[in-house]
């Protein structure tokens, strides 16, 4: 399919650009001292991911990604960042660095192992013809398609998720609200807590 071959190249370019945006955004997110910058990098990551989702013919999920993550969740983050408004002097939590280094080493091992396994598995699956390499039929991954799955096969998880969201909303309100009988925060100047052991 020559069209597919052309599409292939275009897709490849888009894919690598998206990859760069996603991983770069992610790295910026975890390295920036400024929380707002980190949040914005995260938004970039989400957009990159959304683009990737479209590459995977998941248009609906791409839309959701932008709406929910970049829209709702990040708004929440930025809002909280503004409420707290505290930049870090020392962004890295170096306490227990030996243990954490071990943990990261373990992570590296897991990534390596998982990567090897995934590659092997997908190679096998490809070989066995388990993968669809051709373009899906139109409408696949659209609202109708996903909605069909959600309201038939996954009706119960869908309803459960709605309940979960309700609980989360109430819980968030309860956890974050100001305790009535506590003295007002203004009368108690926020003293920087002592560093070190309690």
């Amino acid at each position: 399919m020559p069209a597919a071959a052309e599409g292939h190249l275009g897709q490849t370019i888009v894919f690598w650009v998206c990859t760069a945006v996603v991983l770069g955004g992610a790295l910026l997110t975890i390295t920036r001292r400024n929380t707002v910058v980190a949040a914005m990098s995260l938004v970039a990551t989400f957009f990159g991911l959304a683009a990737m989702f479209t590459l995977l013919s998941a248009q609906f999920l791409a839309a959701i990604q932008v709406l929910v993550y970049a829209g709702a969740i990040m708004t929440l983050f930025v809002f909280v960042v503004m409420v707290l408004n505290r930049d870090e002097r020392e962004p890295w939590a170096l306490r227990g660095i030996v243990g954490k280094a071990l943990g990261i080493g373990a992570l590296g091992y897991l990534t390596l192992l998982g990567g090897t396994f995934l590659l092997g598995a997908s190679a096998l699956l490809t070989k066995q013809g388990a993968y669809h390499t051709e373009a899906p039929k139109p409408g696949w991954g659209g609202v109708a398609d996903v909605g069909n799955a959600l309201f038939t096969t996954y009706l119960f998880p869908f309803e459960a998720i709605s309940l979960l969201l309700l609980v989360a909303v109430i819980g968030a309100v309860v956890v974050a609200r100001t305790v009535k009988h506590a003295p007002p925060a203004s009368q108690e100047p926020p003293t920087p807590p002592a560093h070190g052991e309690h």
Binding site: G96, K100, G103, A106, L107, L110, L113
Partner: peptide, 29 residues
Amino acid sequence: SGDVQRYMAAVLLGTAAIIAVSANWVACT
């Protein structure tokens, strides 16, 4: 330590250890 991050590092270590041991046990693909 009461430090969640260190706990998580321990979880990672444990996961890696379990997988390292059981990787040999999983039937080869």
